[in-house]
Amino acid sequence: MRYEMEPGTRDALIAAGRGSGDNIAAIRESFGLHLDESGESTEFVHVKPERGGLNFGLREGPADVFNSRILRMTRELL
């Protein structure tokens, strides 16, 4: 699926996000972002560095941060 998102979605995900363990330092170093520790909480978007970018783990509660900003979805065939 390809998602067309409202502007500012990435910033909203980061604002709702937390990191864990060594990921916090890696995100600070690579992206200049300061995230708090998520611990075992499922209340936050889980932010982690992956393949040179950021990956956002959407748990049940904070998934609305992403879902509410979807403008359009299209199916892409690979």
Rank of each mutant, 00 (worst) to 15 (best):
M1T: 15
Y3I: 08
Y3W: 10
E4Q: 13
E4R: 15
E6D: 04
T9V: 12
T9D: 03
R10F: 09
R10A: 05
D11N: 11
L13C: 07
I14K: 01
A15R: 13
A15I: 02
G17I: 04
R18D: 09
G19C: 02
D22R: 15
D22Y: 01
D22F: 00
N23W: 05
I24K: 10
I24F: 10
A25I: 11
A25W: 10
A26E: 02
R28G: 01
R28I: 04
E29Q: 12
E29P: 08
S30F: 04
H34G: 11
D36H: 02
E37L: 05
G39V: 08
E40A: 12
T42W: 07
F44E: 06
F44N: 04
V45M: 05
H46T: 11
V47H: 02
P49I: 03
P49H: 02
P49G: 08
E50V: 00
E50H: 10
E50G: 04
R51L: 10
G53K: 10
G53N: 03
L54C: 07
N55P: 04
N55K: 15
F56W: 11
G57A: 11
G57F: 06
R59M: 12
E60Q: 12
G61W: 09
D64Y: 01
D64K: 13
V65A: 01
F66Q: 03
S68W: 05
R72H: 08
R72K: 12
M73R: 15
T74E: 15
L77S: 11
L77H: 07
